[in-house]
Simulated scan of single mutants.
Amino acid sequence: MTLLTHHADPVTSGDEDVSRRLLDSAAALSYDPAVDVDWDAPLDPAHYGLNPEWSTLYGTPLWEEMTEEQRVTLTRHEVASIMSTGIWFEMILQQMVLRDQYVKNYADAEFQFALTEIGDECRHSIMFARACEKLEIDAYFPTRLSIELGRVFKSAAGGEAAYGGILVAEEVLDVMQRDWMRGENVLPLVRRTSQIHVVEESRHMKFARQEIRERMAGASATRKRTSSVVIAAAAYFIVKNMVNEGVYAAAGLDPTTAIAAARSNEHHKTMVRNSCSHLMHFLAEVGLLSRPAMRIYQRVNLI
């Protein structure tokens, strides 16, 4: 089955206008994490890796039983896992965008912003890698199945499904990081890297939405259904891999008990669901929220 339909139509003036504004924004406000993050600052042992409310165990009886040291350790491993998953998907994202822009008009703002986005993602991946190194936490990797499916997705995805997958990953992380960057009890390292990512990813999300709108204009019902399921499947594997099950043993918890507690944690499910309301509204607006897709989103509490 062909996963996606590649878009070969000329770029519309609306697309160009959005891309030009995003290029201007990137020129006015962008960061270099190598110098804009204080990599030498010591890590306060009392600071969390992310807001406790975003921990997969927050609100459970197990969380109440944990020591403060275990809570801090868990949240640091959780944020390192999320960053690792971010790197994995950013590498997929870069390849999809490069393929999409292959031999397009180099004078177009769309082409130029696409390369700007790829440059941003390269810096973000290095930033997350350095943050994990600073936390002294080794990389967490997706499951073998997810890695192999990622290979297929990055090679076959194009058009609205590629940009839809990109948008899902960026939207879910964006809401979390907006909280982390304001968390007074969160490590300054995480707050700063989150701020940089939020600012620059806001442009990427606008670009992805515009690309999706352009490609869905006049799309058939069959194409909409197919792309909606592909996007939902990508979202499923992104969310399933965000917090690696190895984080619980790293915090000194019994993995079986902790995994069961995390899977039944209604507080965390609600946090994730609420964070995706804007995303789901957009997907519905452009015809990419079919019933089969909704069932997939429900399995990972995105709707």
Rank of each mutant, 00 (worst) to 15 (best):
V168H: 03
G150N: 06
A162T: 03
I147R: 05
M176W: 14
G158V: 01
I118K: 09
I147G: 01
G164E: 08
Q112K: 09
L167C: 01
V168A: 10
F153D: 10
A109V: 00
W180P: 00
K154S: 10
S146G: 02
A109W: 03
S125P: 04
A107D: 14
Y106W: 11
T143L: 01
V175H: 08
P188N: 08
V186E: 05
Q101A: 15
F113L: 10
D174V: 11
R178L: 03
M127A: 01
W180K: 05
V175P: 03
R99A: 15
A161N: 07
G164Y: 09
G183C: 02
Y102S: 08
G165E: 04
P188I: 09
L135H: 08
A129F: 05
Q101H: 11
F153I: 10
Q101C: 15
F141N: 06
R151S: 13
L98K: 14
A131P: 02
E148Y: 15
V152Q: 10
A131E: 03
L135W: 11
K134D: 06
E170Y: 10
Y140K: 02
I147L: 05
E133N: 14
F141D: 04
I137Y: 00
M127K: 04
L173A: 02
R191C: 07
G165R: 02
L173W: 00
L189A: 11
D120F: 14
R123K: 14
Y163L: 13
L145D: 06
D174L: 09
I166A: 11
M127L: 03
L115N: 08
S125G: 09
H124N: 08
R123W: 05
I166P: 06
I147Y: 06
L135S: 03
L135K: 01
N105G: 14
D138K: 00
R151M: 13
E121W: 10
A169D: 02
L189D: 08
V190A: 13
P142T: 00
A161Q: 05
N105D: 15
V168F: 08
D138C: 00
V190T: 15
K154E: 12
A131L: 10
V190M: 12
M176I: 14
F153M: 12
A131R: 01
I166D: 05
Q101F: 11
I126T: 04
A129W: 01
